[in-house]
């Protein structure tokens, strides 16, 4: 067990999976010689060579399309998109191809690939280095969508994603990459996809959040605890298929739910989570379900901290919900 940040934990997961399974290959822009824009793939080229760690042209559609071909053949490709904001040129390949390949071939083929992409704001990245596009992919049957919030989960979830037989979109909160260190086992381990983590137990309100916003939720929960409000925080970790049972169990206990996410509010994943909860625990609700999210605007540069649902925006929502 060693203290590691998320970059190191992800790098270790990739290194160990490549050692365990020679079908695992890495491809993306600058993943080889440079080691990735955030250095997540650093050292892999030296360890495994150019045949398995492939620097590609700047062509996201091409990267994902090639990865699909490799996956269909039987490899386990891990494609990197430098920022989630750059994933849209690959949208057709992800949504119409990777997500549907197993389905439309009647199970003749599977498409076991992982698409990694740094996600979220908070690094002064502006419009095109800050987005949180998870809802587009959650909306697409056939994809699994993952977003770890800490180094331990990141390693175990990435290993599980690589070993999964379906395409997995693996969003990495870039604000957390080097901001958090924790004990991470040196040996490989899996965290099963589709299982949420209860970050903190509480009695009065359930917060559901993921990625970098988990830390904002913790800060907000600390603050309202001084007013006697006890908050339970659930990090789904896998955004789809989501562990709705764990969330519903929590809401049945607390009677109140607040969803926090960076993505814009309208048709964000928060809306779906609240609807799923309403369908299952309507009579347990003691207050209207609430969303604290990014605004319905493109991600701003100067005012990014006004756009992000930071603790100072979560606290009033918690108090209002508790007092309803």
């Amino acid at each position: 067990m060693t203290q590691k940040n998320m970059v190191k934990a992800l790098n270790e997961a990739l290194y160990q999976e490549m050692a365990r399974d020679d079908r695992v290959v890495i491809l993306g822009e600058d993943v080889g010689k440079i080691g990735g824009v955030f250095r997540v793939t650093e050292g892999l080229l030296e360890a495994y060579g150019e045949a398995r760690v492939i620097d590609t042209p700047l062509d996201e559609g091409g990267i994902v399309g090639v990865a699909i071909g490799m996956a269909v053949y039987g490899l386990r490709p891990v494609a990197e998109i430098q920022f989630a904001d750059f994933i849209y040129p690959a949208f057709d390949q992800i949504v119409n191809e990777a997500a549907k390949y197993r389905y439309r071939s009647g199970g003749e083929y599977t498409c076991p690939l992982v698409i990694r992409a740094p996600v979220g704001g908070g690094i002064k990245g502006g419009l095109y280095h800050s987005q949180s596009p998870e809802a587009y992919f959650v909306h697409t049957p056939g994809l699994k969508v993952v977003c770890p919030s800490n180094p331990y989960d990141a390693k175990g979830l990435l290993i599980a994603a690589i070993r999964d037989d379906d395409p997995v979109i693996f969003f990495e909160p870039k604000r957390v990459y080097r901001a958090v260190k924790m004990d991470v086992p040196d040996e490989p381990y899996e965290i099963p996809l589709g299982k949420a983590r209860i970050v903190r137990e509480g009695e009065h309100i359930t917060i559901v959040t993921w990625g970098a916003m988990v830390y904002e939720a913790i800060a907000a929960a600390e603050e309202v605890s001084r007013e006697g409000i006890s908050v339970e925080i659930i990090d789904p970790r896998t955004l789809w298929p989501i562990d709705i049972e764990t969330i519903v169990r929590s809401v049945q206990k607390t009677g109140r739910i607040v969803v926090v996410h960076e993505a814009p509010r309208t048709c964000g994943l928060g809306a779906e989570i609240l609807q799923l909860v309403t369908e299952r625990a309507f009579l347990h609700l003691q207050a209207p379900p609430v969303r604290v999210t990014g605004w319905d605007t493109p991600f701003p540069y100067t005012l990014e901290n006004e756009n992000l649902p930071l603790a100072h925006r979560i606290v009033p929502a918690l108090i209002a919900t508790a007092k309803y």
Partner: peptide, 10 residues
């Protein structure tokens, strides 16, 4: 066509 490339590569 792009899948064909990935397949050939694999």
């Amino acid at each position: 066509l792009v899948h064909a490339c990935g397949l050939a590569w694999a």
